[in-house]
Amino acid sequence: MSVRTGLVAATALVAAVALAAPVAAAAPAAPRDGHGATREAMDANVKDGVVGIALQAKDTHGVWKATAGKGDLRTGAPRTAHDRFRAGSITKTFVATVLLQLESEGRLSLDDKVDRWLPRLVRGNGHDGRRVTVRQLLNHTSGIFNYTADEQLQRDVFLADGFLKNRYRTHTPEQLVGIAMQHKPDFAPGTDWNYSNTNYLLAGLVIEKVTGNPYADEVRARIVEPLGLRGTKLPGTSPGLPGPHSRAYSKLAETADGKTYDVTRMNASVAGAAGEIVSSAEDLNRFYAALLRGRLLPKKQLDAMKTTVPVENLGGYGLGLTEQKLSCGVRVWGHGGGIHGSISESVTTEDGRHSLTFNFNSDWTGDSDAIVEAEFCGK
């Protein structure tokens, strides 16, 4: 599973192979838009089985919006450049930003033990919140088991029979953390790196304990509203997507063969602070550019966020923020996100001047890296 695109595990059981069903031809590239390589990479993804793509790039020359493929398999309607979509683990950068803001205000320390804020919640089968710090939650060095790797949860949430039965079921973060506690830790805290969605469920609960407010309220008040992110929502238990939006599609299976399901409507509380956010390409470009330019965090906290742990095939993982050096030497920062029927990517250069966000409205195939490389290194 790609660290950059499959973070919420919507595709945890789905093999990355091409869909055999035919797709509509994408619109031809505009020869003078300066993003010809990006357009070619988008078209190649659609030919290889991605249902549809919505993308926005912003640089010193302006904003470029593009789409490819279908937004609705039933009607044949195309995707729109203004689509809102489930952005999955991109939620993590928002959560980490709020915790770093709270640290800058002196309300907590990243070196606080988790047990200080969430007494006895992280206990069982070798887990011990007295040994795990908030920092280790944010950079995935806690060793805490990833609840979305639990086999029963995967059957209940990610495979067809379970999803269709439970798509509107509400999950609490405490219940999901409890699932993780039924397993042994992946390693002792601070000794290794492994991506765990449980870390960010706990981070959301720490925000709630420190502030007395749900983490989603703090994200809205501290980030969404100040930046004017009008297309960004924390849906909680609400199953619908705000418009405009395309449909979202999944195989809900371990392979890309078989039936394609419309998974647009779902209760995303199973992702919670690890991946429930709904947003748009425009909003996410604005968010990451503002973050990297220092509009959301003081320099000390932004530097901490950008202090990374080496990760194979990625570059580095900081505090809810990924770093990658591309083939042409350009370094980009951001995050990817996968959830049912949706794969998203949002990255920006360190100066925040060149940003890219795109979304696939299907989760069983796709080459996000090719699009990123094309935008920042292509001609």
Rank of each mutant, 00 (worst) to 15 (best):
A21N: 10
Y261I: 00
N313H: 14
V278W: 01
A96D: 11
I179N: 06
E345H: 10
F94C: 00
V177D: 08
G228W: 14
G6A: 06
Y317K: 02
D262G: 09
G258Q: 05
D351Q: 11
P189R: 12
Q152H: 09
L102I: 06
G338H: 10
K306L: 13
E105F: 02
S2Q: 06
L321Q: 04
A12W: 00
S327W: 02
A12R: 06
V347K: 04
G212Q: 04
P28M: 06
N313W: 06
D283H: 11
F287D: 01
L73G: 01
Y195E: 03
H140L: 01
G49E: 06
W364N: 11
V372Q: 12
T148N: 04
D111I: 05
V132F: 05
Y288F: 15
A57H: 05
Y168I: 05
G258M: 05
A29D: 15
A370E: 01
F94A: 03
T255D: 13
A149H: 07
G341D: 08
P310I: 12
L55W: 14
L73N: 08
V309S: 12
K300H: 05
A374K: 04
T322F: 10
N199F: 14
G36A: 15
W333F: 13
A29R: 13
T232D: 09
G204S: 09
Q182W: 01
Y249P: 10
R265D: 14
D186V: 15
T260S: 12
N359A: 12
V219C: 03
V3T: 12
L252S: 07
N359M: 13
T264G: 10
L319F: 12
D367F: 07
Y261W: 10
T172H: 07
P235V: 11
E174L: 13
Q136N: 05
S109F: 04
P173V: 04
Y317H: 08
A290M: 06
H127I: 02
L102T: 04
A180W: 03
D186N: 15
G162V: 08
D217Y: 12
W333A: 02
P28G: 13
D33Y: 05
V23S: 15
V332G: 02
V63Y: 03
L321V: 02
V8T: 05
P119A: 07
L176I: 10
G69C: 08
A21V: 14
R123S: 03
S196E: 04
V157L: 14
P185M: 01
R39Q: 07
G318K: 00
A281E: 03
E225S: 15
V63Q: 02
G366Q: 08
A57F: 05
N213L: 13
Q175E: 15
F187A: 10
V372P: 03
N194Y: 13
R220E: 10
H35I: 09
P214Y: 14
Y288T: 01
I144A: 02
R222L: 06
D156E: 15
T349G: 09
P226H: 14
S342G: 08
H335V: 01
H127D: 03
L13N: 13
T60V: 09
G34T: 04
V95W: 00
G320L: 10
C377W: 05
A180H: 05
F287V: 00
A273L: 01
V210R: 00
K184C: 05
